[in-house]
């Protein structure tokens, strides 16, 4: 072999090895950033990471301030989002996979859903402000916030549902039809139960998105100083359930964080960091559950 060729080959091998190092470095850089982010949050938040922080209202004194109202607000807004978006998204996904004929209307709906997924989140906030708050007079309430976030996560749930419905073997459906089941019986007793895992994974990811979403809720004018809880859903007088909380003003964890991080008083930074720890803890654990679920499902389908 000529020396020239050998040099050429060695050069290429060096480049190859170099890229192997570069690629690994980039992946480590990204994961390292995530690590630094979390470590720094925890360090800044340390003085506030105690139970009272979860159980006290925001306050002018940073050392007394807590996230009770924001935590309850986040949970209630997510509850509304789940109740609205999950049935709607699953139904739409199932329709598009199992029923929709190939025609212009179906194509229009599909293109439309793809476009909805690309709408910037702040635009959802504008829609909610203009339409829900001012045209439909829902106020700056938990209901408005929940609906806004449901529209925002709807495409995520639809896409997840479609993917998992598509993955169901055709023989299951045929078996059901062979037993004389109607289409609805097949869909409701065979298709949806067998695609539940994928739907669940998508729904968890959608809800984790809803937990962290800030901009659209700021746009509808969610107040950030809320030192009260919404009315309780269970009352002592008949009919024992109350939906008054839906109309209540609220704040959520990300807005509370935003509020504290934009204060000039640096002592509030610690509060912001502690809120960040709670928020990151919630979203990352939801994502971790989704990852494990997805992993298990794939194993189930491949074996």
């Amino acid at each position: 072999m000529s020396a020239n060729l050998e040099r050429l080959i060695r050069g290429r091998q060096w480049l190859d090895a170099g890229f192997a190092v570069l690629g690994a470095a980039m992946v480590v850089l990204c994961l390292g950033t995530l690590g630094i982010l979390i470590a720094d949050l925890v360090r800044d938040a340390a003085p506030h990471l105690r139970p009272e922080f979860l159980n006290s209202f925001p306050s002018r004194r940073p050392e007394d301030a807590g996230i009770k109202s924001a935590l309850v607000g986040t949970l209630l807004v997510c509850l509304v989002t789940a109740v609205v978006a999950l049935p709607l998204g699953v139904a739409a996904g199932v329709y598009l996979e199992e029923y929709a004929r190939k025609n212009r209307l179906t194509a229009a709906i599909e293109v439309n859903i793809a476009n909805l997924a690309g709408v910037p989140s702040i635009v959802w906030g504008l829609m909610a402000l203009g339409l829900l708050v001012y045209k439909l007079h829902m106020g700056r309430s938990i209901l408005t916030a929940g609906l806004t976030l449901s529209f925002l996560v709807l495409p995520v749930i639809i896409v997840a549902t479609r993917e998992s419905v598509r993955a169901i073997p055709q023989v299951l459906r045929e078996g059901s039809y062979a037993l004389g089941a109607t289409r609805w019986q097949t869909v409701s007793r065979v298709v949806i139960p067998s695609s539940m895992g994928g739907i669940l994974t998508g729904s968890i990811l959608a809800m984790s998105r809803a937990v962290g979403e800030t901009a659209p809720l700021i746009t509808i004018g969610a107040l950030s100083y809320i030192a009260f809880l919404p009315p309780a859903p269970i009352t002592s007088a008949p009919p024992f359930v109350s939906f008054e909380w839906l109309e209540s003003a609220f704040t959520v964890l990300p807005i509370q964080l935003f509020n504290w991080v934009s204060r000039p008083d640096p002592r509030f930074i610690e509060n912001a960091a502690a809120t960040g720890v709670v928020l990151v803890g919630m979203t990352l654990s939801m994502n971790a559950v989704a990852i494990v679920l997805r992993y298990r499902l794939r194993k189930k389908y491949t074996t």
């Binding site: 630094i36 982010l37 962290g212 912001a272």
Partner: peptide, 23 residues
């Protein structure tokens, strides 16, 4: 590694704002 990387985009953006401003 792939799911671990995806966690990066699961962190709420408001927390990334904190990160941008203070770190």
């Amino acid at each position: 590694l792939k799911p671990a990387l995806e966690l990066l985009s699961a962190v709420p953006t408001v927390v990334f704002g904190y990160f941008a401003l203070l770190i």
